[in-house]
Every structure is written in C-alpha cells, then in structure tokens.
C-alpha cells in the first residue's frame, strides 16, 4: 500500500480544505486526482509530502507518518510542486547534481536527463530552458533518487500540446517501470488517457473514485445519436424505446437517449420496415468530463446507482 488515509481533515482557520478523506492507493499505476480549484487537491498532496500537518485523521505514506517522519519518508517519494521555481543560476546538470546530493542513493544525473529528454540541455542554465523543458527538469528532480512513489501537482499546467504529450510519455514510462504516480490535473482528457484510477475531490471530500470507464458508465448523462437518412422517415418507433428528438433539419436528425443500445437496435428495424437508407450516423457517449461536471456541479449528489459488479465508489458528502 502506497497511501492510506482515514477521516483526513485539514482546516485553515475557519476554512475546511479537507473534510474526512478516506483513500487507499495500492502500489503501481497512475492515479489522477481531479477537482475544481479549491477542492483540496494541493492540500491533500502536500499532506502526503509532509508539507502540511493534518488537523485530524490518519495518514500513512509508504508506511511513514508524513508529519512525524517526513525526512525518512522523503527518501522514498519524489515530488513536483505546483508553481515551484528551479534555481535558475544553475545548469540542468547542476540542479540535478544538487538534488541528488540530498538522498542516500541516487541514479546518475545523465540517466535522469535521458529519461526526461533533456540530454542536449545538460549545460544549459535553467533560466534559459523553455516552459516544457523546465517542467521536465522539475520531473527529473523528482526522479533523481528513483523513488517508488511520485507525486506531481499539475505537471502539465500551462504547457503546449506537444510539451504535454512529452510529459505524458515520461509518466507512462514511469508506470511501466513499476512506479506509483499520483498526479493532480485540470485536464480531464489527460486523466482519461493516462490513469487507471481517477479520484474526484470536491469541497474537500472524495466524491468519486474508480477507473475512468467505471466513472463514465455511472454517469447520469445521455448519449447523443446523429443520423442522416435518404427517404421518408418516421422516428416514432425510436421515441417509443426512450429516444428524445432534439433536432430535425431536412434529412438530419439528432436524438438523445439514456439507453443508446436500445435506440440503435430499434433504428435498424425502422430503417428496414420504412425502406429508408441510412447515409450517415455517429454517436456521442457521455465522457469522463460529463461525469466530472455532474460531480462537481452538484456536490450534494448522493449514492448514484452503480451497475453490476463495478468497483466504482461514488460517495455521499458527510456534511
């Protein structure tokens, strides 16, 4: 077990940043921590890093209590902080060499530079690196002692798509090497692409926790079906199986439905019986973003129905 929390609470004055967070994170894999601004994501990861002391509750990271055993813990975790400046009067090589010296064991600086695609920038002053290169250097600083657990706070924030893609590759490589990566992000598609597991925080509480697919399946959202037909078409049989007609423009129709499969099956029969030709069709299923917006827009949402044996946990806020 990499991380375990029970009833974790953190307050700043009268503000409750974390309100009874229960979380178990097993070793290995990529876990995304999503949530709107002020949801408590950064506070939560800073508690894991030993930078914040919880007000109440239990927390264990790699078997250590971050508040009491922070120095020992930090030998085993690598962190990339949100909005951290790198010592800019040093070269990329010198920055990594400095950070390597803080740990009992470290990997050669050259290896880390290669892992974060900065081999050609070793002698470049940090201040002269581009935004993406600086961010990769920040990731390199977290990798210098080859830790088992990596905690990244918005590692791709403000980067262009190419730079983000490069960071994604680095994160996926880390996963292949058996590391556990916990990262916060505002990019839903990034979490959907990279993470085996997504945890959504809202107002200091975990409101959803599961694989991206499980979370999408538990969404209340409807699929949208677009069809173009050639010939006289009566959509009544589709409405009978739960489709709602949203738009009709000439031969173009748009329907929404919770059970999109039933509508597709009915559509096949309708086309045959009415002798109509289907000229185009596509469907938009609910995405993780739709689910995310459901969760953070309505924090009072409680115990959504979760089908089958899904392990997804949709939690009811306690307050």
């Amino acid at each position: 077990m990499s991380i375990r929390t029970r009833s974790l609470t953190k307050t700043y004055g009268t503000t409750e940043a974390l309100r009874g967070v229960d979380l178990d994170i097993e070793s290995g894999g990529i876990i995304g921590l999503l949530g709107p601004n002020g949801a408590g994501k950064t506070t939560l990861v800073e508690v894991f890093e030993g930078l914040r002391t919880p007000t109440a509750g239990e927390v264990s990271v790699m078997g250590f209590d971050p508040s009491l055993e922070s120095v020992a813990l930090r030998q085993h975790i690598g962190a990339q902080l949100q909005a951290t400046h790198i010592p800019d009067g040093l070269t990329a090589f010198e920055v990594l060499r400095l950070f390597a010296s803080f740990y009992e064991r470290s990997v050669p600086v050259e290896d880390v530079l290669e892992r974060v695609n900065l081999n050609g920038k070793a002698r470049e002053l940090a201040r002269n690196l581009s935004g993406g290169q600086k961010q990769r250097l920040a990731i390199g600083m977290a990798l210098i002692h080859d830790p088992a657990l990596l905690i990244f706070d918005e590692p791709t924030a403000g980067l262009d798509p190419a730079a983000r893609r490069q960071l994604h590759e680095i994160i996926l490589n880390l996963k292949e090497r058996g590391r556990t990566i916990l990262f916060t992000t505002h990019y839903i598609e990034e979490a959907e692409r990279l993470c085996e597991r997504v945890v959504i925080l809202n107002r200091g509480q975990v409101v959803a926790d599961g694989t991206p697919l499980e979370l999408v399946r538990s969404s209340e959202g409807k699929s949208t079906i677009f069809i173009d037909v050639d010939g006289p078409f009566d959509p009544a049989p589709l409405l009978a199986v739960g489709a709602l007609e949203q738009e009709r423009r000439g031969a173009h129709y748009r329907f929404s439905a919770i059970d999109s499969t039933a509508v597709i099956v009915a559509l096949g029969e309708v086309l045959r019986s009415q002798g109509v030709t289907l000229t185009d069709m596509h469907m938009h299923r609910p995405t993780l973003e739709d689910f995310y917006l459901e969760m953070v827009d309505d924090p009072e949402v409680a115990d959504l129905a979760v089908g089958g044996e899904s392990e997804v946990a949709v939690r009811k806020p306690v307050a």
């Binding site: 030998q75 902080l81 740990y103």
Partner: peptide
C-alpha cells in the same frame, strides 16, 4: 519557492 522545493527532499 526554491526553499519549498528543497523542503520536499531529506
């Protein structure tokens, strides 16, 4: 934030 970054090391 440089000191803060050093803070998350040993």
């Amino acid at each position: 934030g440089i000191l803060r970054r050093i803070w998350v090391t040993p």
